[in-house]
Design a protein around this nucleic acid. Structure first.
Length: 449
RNA sequence: GUGGCCGUGGUGAAGCGGUUAACACAUCUGGCUGUGAACCAGACACUCGGGGGUUCAAUUCCCCUCGGUCACCCCA
């Protein structure tokens, strides 16, 4: 039998990692709802033309990274490479814009697919959390979107995020700028690196952040995109810059910042953060304004703005920075039994504990007490409940405090309240507070008696 | 898509032409007949990622392939 493996560029999220992802998404959803955003879930695949028309059929994402396939009905479908196009599509197909309450504010999260060569922080199936605000009427709406993004990062524990902003202007400004750039670079082209010669044809904006010293020095004197921006675009950019700094967010205008999706126009932004380990996971999130996306997809003339975070990247960084508290949920109780009768009694007890929101498991197979205690320990269980023949005969339970290493006998009839009191006790303890629970609880119990 | 490095048991890893393929952790069994530490004694590798080749002999060399990782590219 041949071994099977997970497809290249995919990864399983196991226990801690899955909980870490849940945590990140949970915070992002919570903060988004603070800003009046609602969830919107769209399909994992769409008609391929949706992405060709929105992301852009000349972009790398569509040209070489999209998973495209035909279904049995000969429809040409694509696994979504990003989330914005689907949200825009949904707004149009469901006529969500027919409301007096614009902009529409939505958040989403889910897997995205891009056929790329996997690397650290880059996968073929990866997860994003994003928000879209569609039907903007004010620059404050752009600002709101950015503040929400930053708020989420702060709520996750990020400090010192590098925020870069830029304005791409409208599409005609961008074309004018590309022409100007090419005119500037043309005479120098023979002296430049091979990559830049390729960029010249494909994406001249990228020539600006070449790392080859010679080329980088040329970039310093290159024409500026601001020379081609309308007054309104310039004012918007300055407004955002001042506002973010005014809120204490360290922001820089990076005129070389560009994005790989064609629908962006006007203000764009990107967040990055390199952890102390020095590992560079790339941009952790980014987004911007899209003036024409909705109308080009056949909807009304609505302006939108949004962003997306890469959850894998957020997770990896938070993990390196030890910002994720252990996501492990230790058992409250671990039940150890010996013999059929004991197993029956133990199972009834376990079942009733669970209905009372006590977390626990028991082993149903016969193993040595030694290994069962080892399992209880590795699960981080607070208490062990032992039921063997002695206990069954005497109708009691041996209740062991695993951290204090003390145990006592508790009658069958009193075990449920006994556990509930310890686990849920009126006086609320923090779960990470090792010493408190057992000691205090027992003391108080004695005092009450 | 281009180039570099890597792939040994559940895990971390030695070995780099002929070895019983170390060692450590984990797991299991016993010493302790119902109790988690430590200690002691044992046990556990049906493909050394997969396929092919060179060789008397390959985990060790070569090729292909799959996967990971790094740089480029691109982006979350």
């Amino acid at each position: 039998m041949k071994n099977i493996s997970a497809p290249k560029g995919t990864h399983d999220l196991i226990k801690d990692e899955a909980r870490g992802f849940e945590h990140i998404i949970g915070i992002a959803r919570l903060v988004s709802s603070l800003y009046g955003f609602d969830p919107l879930e769209t399909p994992l695949f769409e008609n391929a033309t949706l992405f060709e028309r929105s992301v852009g059929d000349a972009t790398d994402i569509v040209q070489k990274e999209m998973y495209v396939f035909k279904d049995k009905g000969k429809r040409t479908l694509a696994l979504r490479p990003e989330g914005t196009a689907s949200i825009a599509r949904s707004v149009i197909t469901n006529k969500l814009y027919a409301t007096n309450d614009l902009p529409l504010r939505f958040y989403y999260d889910g897997t995205m697919y891009r056929y790329e060569r996997p690397q650290l922080g880059r996968y073929r199936e990866f997860r994003q959390f994003g928000i879209e605000s569609i039907g903007l009427t004010s620059i404050f709406h752009d600002l709101e979107v950015m503040l929400l993004a930053i708020h989420i990062l702060q709520a996750l524990g990020f400090e010192g995020i590098n925020t870069k902003i830029n304005s791409l202007g409208d599409s005609s400004a961008r074309e004018r700028y590309k022409t100007a750039l090419k005119a500037y670079y043309e005479p120098h082209l023979p002296t430049m690196c091979a990559d830049c010669q390729m960029r010249y044809e494909k994406n001249p904006l990228r020539m600006l952040d070449c790392k080859v010293p010679h080329d980088a020095s040329l970039a310093l004197k290159a024409p500026h995109i601001s020379e081609h921006l309308s007054k309104e675009d310039k004012d918007d950019l300055n407004f955002i810059f001042d506002a973010l700094n005014g809120f204490g967010i360290n922001t820089t205008i990076d005129t070389t910042l560009v994005r790989g999706l064609d629908y962006y126009s006007g203000i764009i932004f990107e967040f990055s953060y390199i952890p102390a380990s020095g590992k560079d996971y790339g941009a952790i999130g980014g987004g911007g304004r899209y003036d024409k996306l909705v109308s080009e997809l056949g909807g009304p003339d609505l302006v939108g703005a949004g962003f997306a975070f890469g959850i894998e990247r957020l997770y990896h960084i938070l993990n390196e920075e030890k910002k994720l508290e252990s996501a492990v949920f230790p058992d409250d109780v671990y039940i150890i039994t010996k013999g059929d009768e004991a197993r029956n009694d133990g199972f009834s007890l376990l079942t009733s504990l669970r209905t009372h929101e006590v977390r626990g498991v028991m082993a149903f197979e016969d193993k040595s007490f030694k290994s069962l205690f080892k399992i209880a320990e590795s699960r981080g269980a607070k208490y062990a409940i032992i039921i063997g023949q002695e206990e069954v005969d005497g109708e009691f339970v041996t209740f062991r405090d695993l951290s204090a290493r003390t145990q006592e006998k508790v009658e069958y009839g009193k075990i449920l309240p006994h556990v509930l009191k310890l686990v849920h006790g009126e006086h609320h303890h923090h779960h990470d507070d090792d010493e408190c629970c057992c000691g205090n609880c027992n003391d108080e119990e004695k005092e009450e008696k």
